[in-house]
Design a protein around this nucleic acid. Structure first.
Length: 285
DNA sequence: ACAACCTCCTGGGGGC
DNA sequence: TGCCCCCAGGAGGTTG
């Protein structure tokens, strides 16, 4: 569920509550999420100071003062919530109670802030690994560039797509090509770029790839500015829903009139690789 | 290399 | 109202 803009929104919410704080108490309420928690996970978090909260693709990374990194992937329904009374503007608060049956991890910082991790579907996962081992870890070793970073540009995408017979939709969902996109933002970016999702990746011209790289950046930046997209479960650490779902041009818009200026098309839906694609057959070619 | 399937798990919504 | 089926943001795996 959460794609790059949602994870980035969570990161921005976690940072002020965790950066520079020590973890006073940590508890897991079950032995696993998608994967088992690592050995002595909670005990190894306790007493550690969080130096920085960063993000790589859809992973949240908390660098700890013992050289380890606490890694979280939100999966489809993972959610962090910060609890605490709101006394004045800027204080942390907790808007929307989450189901305690699905609260799997609880932390408390030395400032008394309580952080819950809640995940009904348990597709999320956490791990604790040495920072020096991060780059070679299976989750990261073959990961492509950040779409908002300097290494993602038209010549890169041209090279990454060269000879690929797979669809541009599937290629953009492949985290080895570019890391952080998911179904929603791939579909939205392809619409903005005027490229049909089933086009063969390796046969898209350089000028159209230029439009695509710009469309990917634009849609991600707009979505981050809107606090991500909420379909059902996603919310920020304060319980606030995202706002970008109101700006979808094609995602979940089957049958609607195309939003492109002057376009008379209707949005189509088809299943591609087991995932729904949405596109306008008139302005996406 | 690649498409098409499946798996993990739960909840919400639509249709009947 | 109730129940059942389908669907969902991810991602790794298998099969052919």
């Amino acid at each position: 569920m959460p794609e790059l803009p949602e994870v980035e929104t969570v990161r921005r919410g976690l940072a002020p509550a965790l950066e520079g704080r020590a973890i006073r108490r940590a508890r897991t309420k079950r032995p696993d999420l998608r994967f088992p928690f690592p050995e002595r996970f909670a005990a190894r978090l306790e007493g550690r100071r969080v130096e920085a909260i960063t993000r790589r693709a859809k992973y949240l990374l908390a660098r700890l003062d013992d050289g380890n990194v606490w890694i979280t992937h939100l999966g489809m329904t993972g959610r962090f919530s910060i609890l605490g009374a709101k006394r004045q503007p800027g204080d942390f608060y907790y808007a929307e109670p989450t189901n305690p049956a699905h609260t799997h991890v609880v932390l408390e910082t030395d400032a008394g802030v309580v952080l819950e991790f809640n995940d009904p579907r348990r597709f999320g996962y956490m791990d604790l690994i040495a920072e020096s081992a991060l780059a070679d870890h299976a989750w990261f070793a073959r990961m492509g560039p950040e779409p908002l970073g300097n290494a993602f540009h038209t010549p890169y995408l041209k090279a990454a797509f060269a000879g690929k017979k797979t669809s541009v939709k599937a290629a953009l969902l492949d985290q080895r090509v570019v890391a952080g996109l998911g179904n929603i933002y791939v579909v939205e970016a392809l619409h903005r770029a005027g490229i049909a999702p089933n086009n063969e990746a390796g046969r898209i011209s350089a000028p159209r790839l230029e439009k695509l790289t710009q469309a990917i950046r634009a849609v991600l930046e707009e979505a981050i500015a809107a606090g991500g997209s909420t379909l059902s479960d996603y919310a920020g650490v304060d319980g606030a829903q995202g706002g970008f779902q109101h700006r979808f041009r094609v995602y979940d818009q089957e049958g609607a009139a195309c939003a492109a200026p002057g376009c008379k098309g209707r949005i189509m839906r088809a299943v591609q690789g087991g995932r729904s694609s949405f596109w306008c057959p008139k302005c996406q070619r």
